[in-house]
Amino acid sequence: MTNWQILWDARDQFWSGFLSTMEIFGLSISAAFLIGCVMLFMLEGTRPRLALPLRIFIDGMRMLPFLMLAYVLYYGLPTFGIRLNAWWAGVGALAVYHGCYFAEIFRGSRLTFPPGQIEAAKAHGFTKGKMFLRLILPQIVMQTRPLIGNQLIYALKDTAFLVIITVRELTAAANNLSGTYFIPTEAFIVVIGFYWAVSIVMEIIIKQCGRFSAKRGFDHV
């Protein structure tokens, strides 16, 4: 039996690992996106008592290796009586970590948002919340589309770290098989193929979304 044959026979393990990875990724990146939007809103206007701690938190997260955060949530929190299972610790860590990245991406774009548009919104009777949801956020998302695509790929790759806190995902499946049959090269090549495939599909989707924003003059595809 060749090594590839062994892997083919174990395809169920890969498949369930892949589904698990996609589930973790889908859930955490959606949460991260929401967290980014909420943080951006909280940074709106002049509320230094809120903005300063939030900026410190965002920067603190961005300057932290993701693995450390996963470790702290999984191994560290029980010290304080909070016990998350590995799966939730992983999803939570990804959501918060990449939420901070999203917040920073959005904040950068918000800094160059045309003030005249804000004035027009005020003059037309918009209050802060609606102005943010209807006028600011949609434009920021269109403006930062390429960066969002990049962040999706980062987040997908970060899911692989969760093998270290015992989450049973795609990399864990490869790890497992390579350990059992001692065929690390082939097992990891398969997994790399999975990560590449998902990333390429995401790239294509994000690129297609560019047409939507290009029509509105946001970028040129």
Partner: peptide, 12 residues
């Protein structure tokens, strides 16, 4: 109702 020098339409 206000009309601005630089229009300030919402581009999206």
């Amino acid at each position: 109702g206000m009309v601005f020098q630089s229009f300030n339409l919402w581009p999206h």
